[in-house]
Design a protein around this nucleic acid. Structure first.
Lengths: 224, 224
DNA sequence: TCATTTCCATAGCGATCGATATATAAATCG
DNA sequence: CGATTTATATATCGATCGCTATGGAAATGA
């Protein structure tokens, strides 16, 4: 039971949160393998012993940076989704918020696209980091699947719709927005994509899947 | 004017095409920065002087590998698109072919997802390679935009549809398929996504964009 | 055969990689 | 005040990075 209102020894001479944020931006833009400790030290404004004392290793720093990214940026993308009263409005919020958030600000301080979606760390040698990124991505699919299933139970979505496939589709659109944002697409272009996608909602979420019976035009769709 | 039916000197002791294919798979899976010359030499079955004699440098090898990938794999994704008689069938072919081709074969010899879409080389230090990847990605958008515009002129797509936004949307879906394939999604899951996406076609490509006039239910859509 | 040309195997180049040893500086505890 | 504890600054560590020099092997041309 350590109280430790104040810690012993010489206090840290830099802002750990600010340093972590700087490291996050660098990993976000450059990826794991292409970012060296020297790069990180320069961006964080510290020397390597301080980095290792505060974060342990490059791998541990990346893991913490990823969690920092999720905590700091994921709400900008997913909070509207979570708060929406209907599945349709949830997906619409997800895509419109993504279109607004994913492009890089003109300052170029933060890179375009989602760090989780664009992370290629799985193939960059470190197994553990690959698993973490995989799980983070799977979380997006889970959120969509659960929300669509709830909407289906509520009658907003036709009973015959394959919720798993639909969730993967809306996720694919959102992931594509990240790729295009990384390539320089701006908020206006991405918003147009989001609105175009939503225009397909009725045809998508009202019709029956595949070869089966078509539950056409049930009372489900709230119309435009 | 060198005839050179047969070249002078000791002939090359390895198959250049096979070595390039091996390098391509490695860059495809691991990216540029995470792939070392030693890795490449092991995969290609040659020593580094042979690599440099045949390909020049790591950067040049990556560029050639990328072109090799486009030449060898892009047709599997885009040939059905190019051959389709209508814009709708073209997009459908693109998505279904992508669903079939993008997942990694169970052997694991080739990684999942498109090398061009998933390449993060732009942030990995080399400016030139970044530009090449950017252009390769833009080519996909160009193909889609041109095909949709042709379809719109042919009356297959409503006049009010924002072709640019629609092209970006279908591209986004296809890019999302690559991300999900890289994460382990199989052909069945991706095909379900492709079919779900096509179910949204009419709602998407028939309605007018944004705030403008809605040219609802014109004679354009060929119905289901 | 022998000079020429080209390729390959070995070894190693300087630079940078991720990570640390050491010594000093700055804080708390007694 | 020391004694202790923690952080920073400097100077590396061995390993690996991308790349190449060197010399011998294997082909052609004369």
């Amino acid at each position: 039971m350590e109280m430790s209102a104040t810690r012993r020894g010489r206090p840290r001479g830099f802002d750990r949160e600010a340093a972590l944020a700087a490291a996050t931006r660098l990993f976000w833009r450059q990826g794991y393998a292409a970012t060296s400790i020297a790069d990180l030290c320069a961006a964080m404004g510290i020397a390597s012993p301080s980095l290792y004392a505060a974060f342990g290793s490059k791998e541990a720093l990346y893991e913490e940076a990823l969690r920092h990214y999720v905590a700091a940026y994921a709400p900008r993308i997913w909070s509207g989704f979570a708060a929406a009263p209907t599945a349709r409005e949830a997906v619409e919020a997800l895509l419109l918020d993504s279109a607004r958030v994913l492009p890089s600000d003109r300052s170029g301080k933060e890179p375009g696209g989602c760090m989780v979606t664009l992370a290629a760390v799985a193939g960059e040698g470190c197994e553990r980091l690959g698993r973490i990124v995989l799980e983070s991505r799977a979380e997006g699919l889970n959120l969509l699947r659960d929300r669509l299933a709830r909407g289906q139970e509520a009658g907003e979505i036709a009973a015959g719709v394959d919720v798993e496939a639909a969730a993967r589709l809306w996720l694919a659109v959102q992931q594509g927005l990240s790729v295009q944002a990384r390539d320089g697409a701006g908020p206006a272009a991405l918003e147009a994509v989001a609105r175009a996608a939503m225009r397909g909602w009725d045809g998508l979420m009202g019709a029956a899947p595949g070869t089966g019976t078509r539950t056409e035009g049930d009372a489900a769709t709230p119309a435009a």
